[in-house]
């Protein structure tokens, strides 16, 4: 299959990108790695009139330690994220989940910001963004603004990005010591999207769970923060035989999972409960080295 025609711009600076994007019309799209966008174009499910290729904008790429958070540039590839020592040290959950995105060749092209801006609730990263309270840094011709992850995902494939805005990067708060992480991805084949995914972070002291963060993949039109689980897990005993299972029973609360080829909503809800338990157990067993 073959994409329809579009105009193409390749700015080399962010300012230039913003200018081009602002003038390129309503149907213009930002092109980063293109790994989500190009298949849609080829299937003619998307008809952008113009593509603003930000792939050569150096300031959008790279990982930096910014003290209380890690900044991941929007066009940093998944592969670069997974390999980044900063990411691995300070936000291992990001590395764990990103390593499950698609396959190696796609991870070489696909970008961290592109994946998040696509706002696909079946993607692996949005749930992680929610769980870790990432902050989206966005720029337009009128300046910078930040959007907390909780406000970023509005609906299926719809983010809080406004026309003319470009996602420049994401701040991942460092959680500090005592945390363990796990991303539990359940899919029918290695290539398939997550039927359900659970991003879990658990902080414990002496076998007692102090704090839990849980984000759910593909449990609604947006990624979902499992607030009920987080509340219920506080103070319970960590480990497989503890009370984490009861806490995980709250996982499907308030979710509105899709019905599609791979699963019906009731099954997804069931999976969310089972997989959340597993993710919490694994996370509490894999505490980060900085403890």
């Amino acid at each position: 299959m073959i994409p329809a025609s579009f105009d193409y711009f390749r700015p080399s600076t962010l300012d230039e990108a913003l200018e081009v994007f602002a003038g390129a019309g309503e149907e213009a799209k930002v092109l980063a790695g293109g790994q989500s966008l190009l298949p849609l174009l080829r299937l003619r499910l998307a008809y952008p009139t113009a593509m603003v290729d930000v792939g050569r904008v150096a300031e959008l790429r790279g990982v930096a330690d910014r003290g209380d958070h890690v900044h991941i540039g929007a066009t940093t590839t998944h592969d670069e994220v997974v390999r980044s020592p900063i990411v691995r040290e300070h936000c291992p959950l990001v590395a764990l989940a990103t390593a499950t995105v698609a396959d190696p060749a796609v991870r070489h092209r696909g970008t961290f910001g592109g994946s998040l801006a696509h706002a696909d609730p079946a993607g692996d990263l949005p749930a992680v963004a929610l769980a870790l309270d990432m902050v989206f840094v966005v720029r337009s011709s009128t300046g910078d603004r930040t959007i907390p992850a909780a406000d970023f995902f509005l609906d299926y494939l719809e983010s809080a990005l406004q026309p003319g805005e470009i996602l420049t990067g994401v701040r991942v708060p460092k959680l500090g010591p005592g945390w363990g992480f796990h991303y539990e991805k359940f899919h029918r084949t290695a290539q398939a999207w997550a039927t359900v995914g659970v991003a879990a972070a658990v902080r414990q002291t002496n076998g007692t769970v102090e704090e839990v963060r849980v984000g759910l993949t593909n449990m609604g039109p947006t990624p979902v923060r499992a607030a009920g689980v987080e509340a219920a897990a506080r103070g319970v005993e960590a480990g497989r035989n503890g009370s984490l299972r009861q806490a995980a029973e709250q996982a499907a609360e308030g979710t509105d999972p899709p019905a599609d080829l791979h699963a019906q909503p009731d099954y997804r809800k069931h999976l969310a409960r089972v997989l959340t338990h597993r993710a919490l157990v694994s996370a509490s067993a894999h505490r980060s080295p900085q403890t």
């Binding site: 092109l31 293109g34 190009l38 298949p39 290729d53 792939g55 060749a105 796609v106 092209r109």
Partner: peptide, 10 residues
């Protein structure tokens, strides 16, 4: 990379 999902201009 998968050359079906990369544009020649890129």
């Amino acid at each position: 990379v998968k050359s079906c999902s990369v544009l020649a201009v890129q």
